[in-house]
Design a protein around this nucleic acid. Structure first.
Lengths: 252, 252
DNA sequence: AAGTGGTCTAGACCACCCG
DNA sequence: GGGTGGTCTAGACCACTTT
């Protein structure tokens, strides 16, 4: 009963685990004034202070370490990391991505249509080539300037009637709220290319400018494909900033 | 004492934790013949079978889930994932990367020199602009065809005498074996660009071909910068294949 | 020698799904 | 309701670094 009480008690704003609340608290403490390489309290001290088990403390610190906020040295302690410029690559919507870069996201609808999937898109989505998909083509904007041309393909059966809302709402908000579709993971292939004159015109940039070509297949939390997308990003206005880590486990 | 005995006993080949051994065992079981979406034994069953605690089982499954090998559904079970085409972005050397793509890695040394860091490289490495860095420029090959032009800068004080081995050994093997320098994490910025005529000639490709420009700062396990590198990858011969995940923790 | 993080145990309660 | 994964506890021993 104590477990449940504690959980309910502290839920002023959000339903969260103890370790997640502790993690957020530690982030606040670090941001409030700890210097890089300054030592945090020991795991046992934190456990005592916040009246949780040491395992719970370690879970919070594990996440902070994965996020690059702290590093740990066995026998010595846990220390604040040097501030990072880049974050690990995350699955974010275009809108979130632009806001994180301090830009105002926007969108210009080019085409909405129901079409047969065809071989390539059908293969990516695990559909027969004859099965219908909803095709949404948009020019994505940041501060009213074109950033990328995006073609999204969704299995028709998963999103009946979605075309009526495409112009107005966020596509992914609609998918989540109307159909319960949430993309949990996406596999991407990123290529370097140059823009065809037609695409270049849509993106208001010279023909043959450098660009990223991104193919993405989005999966739900049970690894079922629910989205295939192709995007062309202006190379002069977009870059990837990512952190990569040495793999711990061998083989795979 | 039982813990230590068990650890020593099973260390025929490697020194590993119980959860890591269990993880590798499960990978072998999955690869041996489990179908996608087939259910694994329950966590409690695995704990009994392998005579470990449930937490240890969960640690193994956590890693498999992060690697995309399994997915879990609360109340239902743990299931084998659909095979993945792409893996999460990992910190690998060029050589490992090429071997993973089934290509024979190679290298053509262009320049080795000791130079002042300058403002940009010094900033990235946390050095004064006047401090000396070792500059190694190489054309990296796959199956004897040029893939990228790579400029690596290392603080001179960290790698005294390295220039004598640059032509012969793997650069990162040398750094690790001679100086104990291991890159644990790297921050990268990836841009789309086209190749200057000079670089294009080195890479044996037409001028103004599409290319990736990659800036990388490598850090050791205590978040100290130990390497700055710039690479230009031929867009026709290189692409990024990565998985991205919905972030679990909020804020950050 | 003392203290730190790394790993593990045995047991408990919760939220969720229906094999 | 019974079984599943998700979270948490209190305690233990190990490997490692160092006030």
């Amino acid at each position: 009963m104590t477990g449940k009480d504690a959980r309910v008690m502290a839920n002023d704003e959000q339903t969260q685990t103890k370790s997640e609340r502790l993690r957020q608290h530690l982030v606040a403490v670090i941001d409030a004034g700890l210097e890089p390489h300054e030592r945090l309290p020991t795991e046992r001290d934190l456990a005592d202070t916040f009246d949780v088990s040491r395992l719970t403390v370690r879970r919070a610190l594990d996440r902070l370490e994965r996020d690059g906020r702290v590093y740990r040295v066995q026998g010595a302690g846990t220390f604040v990391s040097e501030p990072r410029i880049t974050k690990s690559l995350e699955l974010t919507s275009f809108s979130e991505d632009m806001r994180a870069r301090g830009l105002q996201p926007g969108s210009r609808l080019v085409r909405v249509a129901t079409v047969p999937a065809g071989a390539r898109i059908g293969y990516a989505l695990g559909l027969s080539p004859a099965e219908e998909v909803l095709h949404v083509q948009r020019v994505r904007l940041a501060d009213d300037a074109p950033i990328c041309l995006e073609d999204v393909y969704l299995p028709r059966v998963l999103v009946p009637g979605l075309e009526d809302f495409v112009g107005t709402d966020s596509l992914y908000d609609s998918m989540e709220q109307r159909y319960g579709l949430v993309i949990d993971r996406a596999d991407q292939t990123i290529r370097a290319t140059v823009l065809d004159p037609g695409v270049a015109a849509l993106l208001e940039t010279p023909a043959f400018s450098p660009a990223f070509q991104v193919e993405r297949t989005g999966f739900d939390d049970r690894s079922r494909p629910i989205e295939f997308a192709e995007s062309l990003y202006r190379g002069d206005r977009y870059s990837y900033e990512i952190s990569v880590f040495r793999r711990s486990g061998a083989s795979q």
